[in-house]
Every structure is written in C-alpha cells, then in structure tokens.
Write a protein that binds this DNA or RNA. Structure first.
Lengths: 167, 167
DNA sequence: TTAAACTTTCAAATATTTCTGAAACTTTAT
DNA sequence: ATAAAGTTTCAGAAATATTTGAAAGTTTAA
C-alpha cells in the first residue's frame, strides 16, 4: 500500500468513525488529516486535500477548536492562519472526555434529577418511574465521577487511584 | 411536575442523547419508554405511546434486540409479542460496551494496523505517518483492553483489578 | 389447508444534517 | 483611509438518514 492510499484510508475511516459517534464526518476528517500532518496546515491546504468548500472548512475548524483539540498557529511574517492538532493522545482523550461530560452527561444528569424527584405518592406507576429514573441518575453520576477521576490522573490514573484507596 | 409530563421529558431527552451518540432518536426513545415501563409492552403500545408507524417500531425494536438490550416476551395464551428492556444497569453498560467494541473499535483497530504498517523506508512523510498511526493503534488497543477488563468484572471490576495488581 | 393475527420489509416520502459559495466582515500593511 | 489578504456567516442546495404505509411474509389455531 502506498502512502497516499494509506492516508486516504485512514482519513476516510476516521471520518466514518466520527459520524458513528455524533461528530460530523468532515470534522473528523479534518482532525485525521491534521493528526498525520508533520506541519501545520492552512485552511487552503485543508480545503484542497479534502475537496471541501471554504465555509465548510471554516465551520468545522471552529468546531474542532471549540473541543480544544485543534489550535491556530501564526507563522512569523505570514498573514494566514495555520492549524495544528493536539497530538498527545492522553491529552486528546482527556479533552474529549471532559468536553463530552460537560456537553452531554451533565445536562442529562439534570434531566434525570428533575424527573426522578416528582412526588411519587399515590400511583404505583409513579413510584416505578421515580425508582427507575433515580437508579439511572445514580448510575450516570457514578460513571461521570469515574470519568472525571480518570482524566484527573491521565495515563497514570489507575496507579494513583490504587494509592488513594489503600491509604 | 406530573407523571405524564416527566415521562415525556425523560423520553425526549433520552432520545436526544441517543442521537448525539450515533443511535437514532426513535430507537433511544423506545428504549427509554421500556426502561420506565413496569410491564412489557406490545408493538401497538409502543406505536401509540410514541406516535410512530408500525414499520418504524418494528425496525427499531429489532435494532435494540441486536444490541441485546431489549428482548421479546411471550404471554401465555397470547399471540402478540411483548418487549422488555434490560433493566440491570451494570448489565446494560456491559452489553453496550461490548457491542460498541465489536462494531466500532475492532474495525477501527484493523484499519489502524493496516495503514500503520506500510513500508516507511524513504520519505520522512511516510515515517511520520506510520509513527502517528502506530501510536494511535497502541492507544486505541490499550483503551479497548481496559474496557474489556472493566466489563469482565462488571461493577466490581476496580476492586478485582486492584487485587490482581497487588498479587 | 385456510384464514386470522400478527410482524417484517422496502420503495417512496419526509425530515434532518451537512455543504457550498458568495457576500459581509476583519485584520494588517502601506 | 484604503485595499489586499484573509476569515466567517448563512440562505439555499445537496446529501443523508429516518419514517411511513402497504404489500409480502410468518405463525398459529382450528
């Protein structure tokens, strides 16, 4: 397999993976492209490589920056903006985990807390509902806390956690 | 907040959450409905409650069964099929984790392995590519293994893991 | 074997998401 | 202040994904 071919295969599957995870295909592709790029790329470079429009590139780069996993770089003497991906994978994982927690888990927890605390007196239907959503709340909260712990300690988290537990 | 209102809010947000996670809205809503249903529900019950067509209900119930998180139940003397959700949350998490690993992570690993093993001799561009995708492969593999360990031991996994490490 | 009761399938319709491209905006150098 | 170089925005177009509904398929009981 030649480089160009391998590159396409990587970018395509990273893109497909992204869309399965609720990230849009192009955003994931741009991320993939930046991950394998030794140098930072301009918007034009990205548009050309992926054959996408300027508007599309602009919006998705903004999206990646909102996730905190891509940032701008300015080259001295140049007007253009260049983009680089966060390439430390532990750091990348931490940022994604934190952002998903903030954007998705926390709001879900709020809903679960609200709906599980309606007054259950009376019908057994109500009782069942508050019981189930309450359990869900506890579970999601526990999971979110574990994720937080994990990101706190990055790759070394397990060892640190063990130490904490043992003392 | 009244039960009906709380129920709608729960089903809607579970549905929205689903679509952020690459699961379609209706499938997530059916799942939510079954989670708070003390009794098993027929396809008609589900169609009525969510105002969806028979075809839609049928396909999404099949989807949920493929994930292994909903199953059919037959009531004695009745022709109709009834559906129930897996309500043990640890069990639910394990099933989802295993299925995602099988459907998404494993195929991604294959691609990463393939593309990272092209012959890197020559250009430094190639070298960088194989290096980056190789690191990605190692990282995803490590993450997948941890997930597997976690599901093996279900809720008790951490304690078990600690024991293993200490011996 | 038939027909009633029920489920599945899939082509066409609908809804949702993403993408384009051109206009508006911003920044910088002169 | 101006214009060149660049970026962002957003309405409409295109692409994708989901949903419907009716026909085909299946199962069961008599």
């Amino acid at each position: 397999m030649e480089l160009e071919q391998a590159k396409r295969r990587f970018i395509d599957s990273w893109g497909a993976l992204g869309s399965q995870w609720g990230i849009n295909r192009t955003m994931a592709q741009i991320h993939a492209l930046l991950m394998i790029s030794p140098d930072s790329l301009s918007m034009e470079d990205i548009m050309d490589d992926l054959s996408i429009s300027r508007g599309n590139a602009s919006m998705n780069l903004r999206g990646l920056m909102d996730w905190g996993i891509v940032h701008k770089e300015y080259k001295p003497g140049e007007r253009k903006e260049y983009f680089v991906a966060e390439k430390d994978l532990d750091e990348l994982a931490v940022k994604i985990a934190r952002e998903r927690s903030k954007r998705e888990i926390k709001p879900a927890l709020k809903v679960l807390k609200d709906v599980s605390s309606i007054d259950a007196a009376g019908s057994s239907e109500k009782k069942y509902f508050t019981e189930q959503t309450g359990k869900l709340y506890d579970f999601v909260l526990k999971a979110d806390n574990m994720l937080e712990k994990a990101t706190e300690y990055k790759d070394n988290w397990l060892a640190q956690l063990v130490l904490k537990i043992m003392r």
